[in-house]
Structure formats: C-alpha cells, structure tokens
Nucleic acid binder design. Structure first.
Length: 486
DNA sequence: TTTTGAGTTGTTCGA
DNA sequence: GTCGAACAACTCAAA
C-alpha cells in the first residue's frame, strides 16, 4: 500500500483524529506533516501569543509521535506546493486532513484538493474539529440558524458521533526514507523579544496537557461550573479554549467525557452543570457554523446598517492604547487587559466587560478590539473572536440589545466581590479596602493616602465618566434606529 | 403565507 | 432596600 500523508493543522492530536485514523486504516505508511503557511490564512495569520502556543504544541506533538515510532515532518511555504512535493517524493497515494471552516482555510483546502487530485492522489477532508459539519445543521427553511437557542436545541436532537479510536499500529510500516524536515524552532514562532507567554502562564500545550485538563475539569470543576464560571478570581472555568483551538482535544472528546460521567438516560444532558458546560461547547460550534455561512463577518458587521455607527474620534489612538494597556481607570477592565497582556488569556466574564467598555464607553469600533484580542490571546480563534465581538457590539448574530451596557463598577463588585482578581492584576490598588477597590476615585483622600494609592499618578483616574459615556452610547445606537438594515 | 413568540451573560429609575 | 418596568426595534424560527 502507498504511503498516506496526514496534513495536520488545528488538529494537533493523535486520538479522535478522523484524518489520521482513516490514513492508518489504509494499511500503508503514515506520514504526519505540519506546514507553516501564514499566508494561507488570509488577513488572519496567527498572532504572537497564538504562534507561541503553536510552537509548544508542535514540540509536544513531535514527542508523542516519536514515542510511537513515528515522526512529524515540519515544513513551511504554500501548503499546496509543499504537499504536492511531498506526495511526489513519497509516492503517496493519499493526503488526508481534517476540515477547517474559516474562510482562508477553506479556500486553501480547495486549492490543495485540486492540486492533488490532478496528480491522481486521493485527497480528502474529514470532520473532526466540530460536533457536526455546518451544512448538516440547518433550519426548516434550509438556511443556517442565526439564533443560538434554536440552533442548540436542534443540535441536541442529533446524535454526536463518538470520538474515533486510533487503530493499533497506526503509523503502519516505516517509509523507506523520511522526507527532510525542519526543526520546530526553525519556524521562529516564539517571540524574539520579551518572554515566552506559555510557560509563565502555567499552560501545558499538547495533547497530554489537554487531556489532563479535561479529565481534571470533569472530575472536579464541572460540578461547580454554574456557580464559579463567572468568578474571575476563582479557578471556575475549564481552561480548555486554547487546547480546543489547536485541536489538542476535540469537542467530541469533551462531549464523551461529560456524558460518561453522568448516568443520564433519555434526554442528555439532564444534569444542569453538564448542560451549562456543553452549551459553551455549543457556542463554539455555533461560532464556527456562523463563520462558515457568513465568511465576511471577521471584518464586516453581520447587520449591515452598523457600518454607519458613529464611532468616537480617538486622536492618535490614545483611548485605544489606554484600553489595551489596562489604563482606563476602571479596575475590572484594567485587570482583564493586564491579565491578557501578561498571560495571553482573559477570563470570559471580564472579556465581556472589557469588550463592552471599548465599544460602548469608548465608542471605538469592535474591529480594533477583535484585532487586539487576535494578537494577544493564546486561544485566539477566528470564529469565537468574531462572534464574541459582534455580539458585544450588538451587530452580530443573537447580539446583545444596544441598551445592555455593562457597568464596570457594578460588574466588578458583583463578580469579584472580594477583589481577589483586581488585586492580582492591578497590584497597586491592593492595599485599598475592598469597598473602594472597584471605584478608587470614590475613596476619601485619607483612605487613598494610607493605601499609598496616588490617583492620576500611581493609578489613572477614569478616562471616561460612566454616566456620560453610557448616555452617549445610547444616543449613538439610537441614531441607527430603523437603519440597521439596508 | 402570515402570524406569533421569543431572543446568553444588564442597568437604571421610580414606586 | 426591593421590585418591576422600561430601555426599541428587529430578526429568526416555527406553527
């Protein structure tokens, strides 16, 4: 049997990898290949944090492959060109991959497919990144769902395919000669200056780290998920997002792990904590399906009238920069933005608060926020990022109503009542009594002094007044009234 | 085809 | 201090 190439991208795992399993079942040698092809991603080549994660994930994947007597072939360049060359060199009869649903990646798959089929190679994509393929989830009119609840209700009626097993002896007989490969470090994915955000963030990229994280979450955090997931000062979320993004674990594995835990019969999931967690997997699913059906949404509002939104002027990007650097004067926002900057991750509740602040309080276009998140998040994912920002801005699918404007002080007091989160990421406010922590400008001069907090010197005063900013945002949204459609 | 009910995560105001 | 209403208009999805 001829060799099969497995073209790995955002599926950096050996288990539940449909393309890899299919290649193994052919019975010939299996050659796993990763190609660094940022130009193939269109306008959304991976950002700095994402690249760093990718580096570590590739190193981990290579080690796992070596443990099984295989290797990872690492290359760079145009994917179709590299794959054609490898197929020729190996005499490969098949090239398999797991489909992606971002516009750039989908176009690339088409090019690769055409190039290989011309050479008579069996070129095929598989579904392994999502619970269901986007064209398989449609409403009764045959169109895509644009509201989450009906989408998810519909999904829950469908059977979730179980994770696929990796057959024994998966990598088949050895190839006669391994193709030349770069070292992972040759790809220059780690930041040249500054520190590597991955180890300092306490992350363990790779399939093993991902499985451990899932196991630990299902055994522990899941039963507190509903209570703790909105508390940024607690370890209440699954922390699976970067692992899911790079496919170090698949959503079907997460589904199966949760299902195995619950003794439910009949309607699954009945356990409310499990349902809440799986609904988050559902949002990931929804985001990817939407991006598949609406490929322009990373840069264009789904609701076209919003392109006329009256954004505020921001001379020299001073406001944007203050937001990015965590200098807005609103502690919960600044804590989030600094957590992002320092660890490459931000708690989901705080992402919503920070996003709402940029779009509604500062009236800066969500696209600037999306770009910043894209470059700084280790879990930056085009589908999730696009849905999240358009939702926050009120111009996307199932968007927040325009009058829903998060009040940063109130959100801080509600979700970080003891102030652990703010104290961790905005240490200069640490000594302040908790009751003033989320609004230091309300503290009496004497309290500030004894806490050693200099407002306007050590920590900024609010760059906008909440009441005034809120009124301005409502006015701006009102100006679109009756205008949100062409 | 038309109608109807509903829609992730909020805030403020006034009784 | 608590509670309900108002904050609008629009789309989606199903009946």
């Amino acid at each position: 049997m001829t060799p099969a190439i497995v073209w790995l991208r955002r599926d950096l795992r050996l288990r539940d990898n449909a393309a890899l399993s299919a290649a193994a079942l052919r019975g010939g040698p299996v050659v796993p290949v990763f190609i660094w092809d940022p130009q193939g991603e269109g306008a959304w080549a991976p950002g700095a944090s994402s690249r760093a994660w990718l580096h570590h994930s590739l190193v981990a994947l290579e080690a796992s492959l070596r443990e099984r007597g295989s290797r990872l072939v690492v290359a760079r360049g145009a994917s179709a060109h590299v794959l054609e060359g490898l197929a020729r060199e190996l005499g490969a009869g098949a090239v398999y991959w797991n489909r992606r649903y971002e516009p750039g990646a989908a176009v690339l798959e088409g090019i690769v497919n055409a190039a290989l089929e011309r050479r008579g190679v069996d070129a095929r994509g598989f579904c392994s990144a999502l619970l269901f393929e986007p064209p398989a989830v449609l409403n009764r009119q045959g169109g895509p769902f644009q509201v989450f609840t009906p989408f998810w209700r519909h999904c829950l009626q469908l059977p979730v395919p179980p994770p696929v097993a990796l057959p024994a002896g998966a990598f088949g007989p050895r190839v006669r000669k391994w193709p030349r490969s770069l070292e992972c470090s040759d790809l220059d994915l780690l930041p040249k200056a500054g520190r590597d955000p991955i180890p300092s963030g306490g992350w363990s990229p790779g399939e093993k780290g991902a499985s451990r994280r899932l196991r630990r979450f299902v055994a522990g955090g899941l039963k507190r998920y509903g209570r703790d997931r909105d508390r940024p000062g607690r370890d209440g979320t699954s922390l699976l997002s970067p692992h899911l993004h790079f496919g170090e674990i698949g959503p079907r594995q997460a589904w199966a792990a949760v299902k195995a835990l619950s003794a439910d019969t009949g309607v699954f999931p009945r356990d409310p904590e499990a349902a809440t967690f799986l609904r988050e997997i559902g949002w990931r699913e929804f985001a990817h399906h939407l991006l598949f059906h609406f490929p322009t949404t990373p840069s264009i509002p789904l609701r076209p009238g919003f392109s006329r939104f009256p954004w505020a002027e921001d001379k020299g990007h001073a406001m944007l920069r203050a937001w990015q650097e965590g200098r807005t004067g609103y502690p919960i926002v600044d804590a989030g933005m600094r957590q992002l900057q320092e660890s490459g991750w931000m708690h989901n509740r705080v992402r919503m608060v920070a996003a709402s602040f940029l779009v509604k309080h500062l009236r800066i276009s969500w696209i600037h926020g999306a770009r910043w998140f894209w470059n700084t998040l280790v879990d930056a994912d085009l589908a999730n990022n696009t849905l999240g920002w358009q939702w926050s801005a009120g111009c996307g699918a199932d968007a927040a109503p325009y009058f829903r404007i998060f009040a940063p002080v109130k959100q801080g007091m509600r979700w970080d009542p003891e102030g652990d989160y703010v104290r961790r990421w905005v240490p200069e406010l640490g000594p302040l009594p908790t009751r003033f922590l989320h609004a230091p400008w309300e503290a009496p001069e004497s309290v500030l002094a004894s806490a050693g907090v200099g407002l306007g010197t050590g920590y900024p005063r609010p760059i906008v007044d909440h009441g005034a900013a809120r009124a301005a945002a409502l006015g701006a949204f009102r100006s679109l009234r009756g205008n949100t459609h062409p």
